Amino acid sequence: MTGVSFMLPFVVAGGLSIALSFVFGINAAEQEGSLAAALMQIGGNSAFALMVPILAGYIAFSIADRPGIAPGMIGGMLASSIGAGFLGGIIAGFLAGYITQWLKKTIKLPENLQGLMPILILPFLASLIVGLLMIYLIGPPVEGIMNGLESWLQGMTDANAVLLGLILGAMMAFDMGGPVNKAAYTFGVGLLGSEIYGPMAAIMAAGMTPPLGLALATVLFKNRFTRQEIEAGKPAWFMGISFITEGAIPFAAADPIRVIPSIMTGSAITGALSMLFGVGLRAPHGGIFVLPIPNVVTNLGFYALAIIAGTIVTAFMLRILKPKLEE
């Protein structure tokens, strides 16, 4: 998931710029020349516009090294322009990477022309192939899938919303910043551009509860943790409120059989409650620090309740599953 790691700074910078534009009102960015419009241009029209191309480009880079970047980014840009979204970008990234690798192994040039391969031949041919595939073969069906997904999300019943929140929440806690976590996060971020904010709220809340629940457990149930783990619980508070799910990793690494089910349960409940309460979040990162920004979160009180509930459930799951340590 190299692409997600490179995409994340664009998501954070763009998302927080958009969030700041909402300080002036939900529709303030429609006023040309205003500061809100400038912030929206920075975040929505620039940083977010680069999101899918960066994702695709660096997926390709992880497969084919530098020659894969150009075809990957071009494929990602095409995915955005034809409406295939982040799903199309992921496909474009893998296509670009493997096509570039295949071309590299297939094309044989004389020794004196080898220097042209990484800067001319591979990027050009791979971009051509990926571009044509995206426009004529892959783009239209993926666009249909994305449109169908958006329609389903917009018309979700409460039961469907809760189920989605449950799944996304569990995914966020499963590997704490790993591929499954990033897949859920990328899904939520991809929907922000379609003005669907519920999944992003569930995802961020569910990503906060693992460190928070563990931190709470080290306070309430000290006899379940080593002295080192109790000390690790102190910074976990800050990592939790900052939406740094990786704060749970030291605990999960020490006792994965008990910790991972506990944090998955708490995060799943948080995600489900967030969706049930109809919470929406317009910022893709920032933890509790974006919550005071006006108009960024809908149903803020219920959002806080969902996070608190998941934190408590996580702590008590740890109380149940983890045995007392011998004195």
Rank of each mutant, 00 (worst) to 15 (best):
I74L: 15
G301W: 11
L103S: 06
L291H: 07
L216V: 00
L20W: 08
A37Q: 12
L132F: 14
L216I: 00
L325W: 07
I257D: 00
L109M: 09
F238M: 15
G57E: 11
S17T: 06
A47R: 07
G148Y: 15
L20C: 00
N223D: 15
G139Y: 09
P256Y: 00
M171W: 09
M275C: 03
A206N: 08
Y303N: 05
A232W: 11
A268S: 11
G25E: 09
G44E: 05
F221M: 05
V219H: 08
G88K: 13
L166R: 01
A28Q: 03
G310E: 03
G75T: 02
I63M: 05
A205Y: 03
N160I: 02
T209M: 08
N295H: 15
I74M: 13
L318F: 03
P284H: 12
L50C: 14
S267K: 04
L120T: 06
P110E: 07
L192Q: 14
E32G: 06
I288G: 05
I135Q: 12
A173I: 01
G14Y: 01
L16R: 00
I293E: 04
G155T: 13
N295Q: 15
Q228S: 11
N45W: 08
M40K: 11
A268W: 00
M208L: 09
L35S: 02
G177I: 12
A215H: 05
A232G: 10
S267M: 02
H285F: 14
I260L: 00
L300P: 04
A159E: 08
A96V: 07
E229M: 10
I308Y: 03
G155I: 11
I63A: 04
A268H: 03
I249T: 06
A202K: 04
A70Y: 02
G85Y: 07
K324Q: 12
F243P: 01
A173G: 06
L122H: 02
T186A: 15
S267I: 03
D65C: 05
N299V: 02
N27H: 10
F221C: 04
I308D: 03
V296L: 08
P323K: 15
P250H: 07
F302M: 15
I308V: 14
G177R: 12
F289Q: 11
T311D: 03
L291V: 15
F225P: 04
